[in-house]
């Protein structure tokens, strides 16, 4: 289903509001059948970029083309866009089906086409069982999927998901992942603005890290991780109690650093398996039995932390 022509092109997007620069020359290209995750901390510029793509705010410099047209200057081009807002943009007092019919009509879909679109959207997002339930009675995870269903009724070519996984429990998350994959496989281009690095790692074909209005890194997750960390693996040690002075020496000698204020210690190491075995032995000799020692591939979270460190150093 992949089409070589980009659905979305952003060239050097800049946005300044009241002398503050929210976007500083962001480029972005997204093609059909691709999931792109826009990552970054709060205030990085993700939401501003999404608003610009939706045609809500003007750019101070640069340009945006959605299916070849500027979405702000040519509103009709926005029919190629489906937005899933961060909040549950649904009418609580109406049933799932009523919500879908309402938003479908607002998107310009009517009659038999709308009924078919509603059926298809409920199938893809796995919400057909709740068709007649008032939305207010559904769990957060179920509402998240209804939120997505309402955005795809007009078969947009680009679907923008703003923090889609917030409030989703593991079961709901699995259903959400499946729905997003199905939409991608159906040829839709998907742009996710999220702080959920696990979600991005699992779903995204490409990710872009944003920080202070700039896109600082972009690429396929696995490729970026390999480039950044090479042969290194992550060692994760979890202890039951706070380590004393001698334990700290052992952990520090292996290069482990405490993660925030938890009893979890991590490091990246090219000889991770040997280091982990040595750590286990040394800690046990000192009478400390770790709850868990794990060796795993570095994730986007490691990359994210690395990017943050670069920025701080800069």
């Amino acid at each position: 289903m992949n089409d070589n022509r980009p659905i979305l092109n952003v060239w050097g997007a800049e946005h300044t509001y009241r002398s503050r620069r929210y976007l500083k020359g962001v480029d972005l290209t997204l093609r059909a059948g691709e999931i792109y995750a826009l990552l970054g901390p709060a205030g990085a510029g993700k939401a501003t970029l999404v608003q610009a793509i939706c045609g809500r705010i003007p750019l101070s410099a640069g340009d945006i083309a959605l299916v070849g047209q500027n979405p702000r200057e040519t509103p009709i081009s926005r029919s190629a866009l489906g937005l899933v807002p961060h909040a549950m943009a649904l009418y609580d007092h109406m049933t799932v089906r009523e919500n879908l019919l309402t938003f479908g009509r607002m998107a310009g879909v009517h009659g038999r086409t709308l009924r078919d679109a509603v059926r298809q959207a409920m199938h893809v997002t796995r919400i057909a069982d709740y068709e007649r339930e008032p939305v207010g009675r559904l769990s957060d995870g179920e509402q998240r999927r209804v939120n997505i269903a309402c955005a795809i009724l007009h078969s947009p070519r680009l679907l923008i998901l703003d923090e889609p996984s917030v409030g989703a429990d593991p079961v709901a998350r699995e259903a959400l992942d499946g729905a997003v994959r199905d939409l991608r496989d159906g040829g839709m281009a998907i742009l996710m603005a999220t702080g959920d690095l696990d979600l991005a790692g699992e779903l995204a074909d490409r990710v872009g890290f944003m920080r202070e209005g700039r896109k600082v890194l972009e690429g396929a997750p696995r490729q970026l991780i390999t480039q950044a960390f090479g042969e290194e693996m992550e060692i994760l040690v979890q202890l039951d109690e706070d380590p004393d002075g001698d334990d700290m020496v052992v952990l520090a000698a292996a290069g482990l650093e405490r993660r925030d204020r938890t009893n979890i210690w991590t490091t990246l190491d090219a000889g991770a398996y040997a280091t982990a075995a040595r750590l286990d032995r040394d800690l046990r000799q000192m009478g400390v039995v770790p709850r868990e020692i794990r060796v795993r591939q570095p994730s986007l979270a490691n990359l994210f932390n690395m990017v943050a460190d670069w920025q701080q150093a800069a």
Binding site: R56, S79, L83, M106, A151
Partner: peptide, 19 residues
């Protein structure tokens, strides 16, 4: 506006006028 419904509608081609 708080629920994001306005954002969803504004992102569409018809904008907010019909709503």
């Amino acid at each position: 506006r708080n629920a994001g419904i306005a954002d969803r509608i504004l992102a569409g081609p018809a904008g907010l006028a019909p709503a």
